[in-house]
């Protein structure tokens, strides 16, 4: 198994240790707003364990993916919503 994976976050390439979660990759690019709340507030990960749904983003075209429960795969296209 290769030791790193590279994903794209909003078009920016980021390399992570294999097994990393998408949420960690997004934060590593310096992006802290993962989505906008129903009233437009910036939001990012809270629980880190799949409970709160605050870290949801679009992954490979699929909306509302919990980035804290999704393992990075090479070439993954991640889009934040805010």
């Amino acid at each position: 198994m290769p030791e790193t994976v590279t994903v794209m976050v909003n078009g920016v390439s980021v390399t992570m240790p294999a097994g990393s979660m998408v949420s960690a990759a997004i934060l590593k690019t310096g992006k802290t707003t993962f989505r906008r709340s129903v009233s437009g507030e910036p939001r990012g990960p809270l629980c880190g364990m799949g409970i709160c749904f605050e870290c949801r983003v679009t992954i490979d075209g699929e909306a509302h993916c919990r980035s804290c429960q999704t393992v990075c795969k090479d070439g993954m296209d991640v889009r934040t919503d805010g």
Partner: peptide, 21 residues
């Protein structure tokens, strides 16, 4: 408390365990 980078204690630990520097 809703600001980005305010997280759970276990929440931040989980993120660091899964790749956050």
């Amino acid at each position: 408390w809703t600001l980005p980078n305010v997280m759970g204690a276990g929440g931040l630990q989980a993120l660091v365990k899964t790749g956050l520097p």
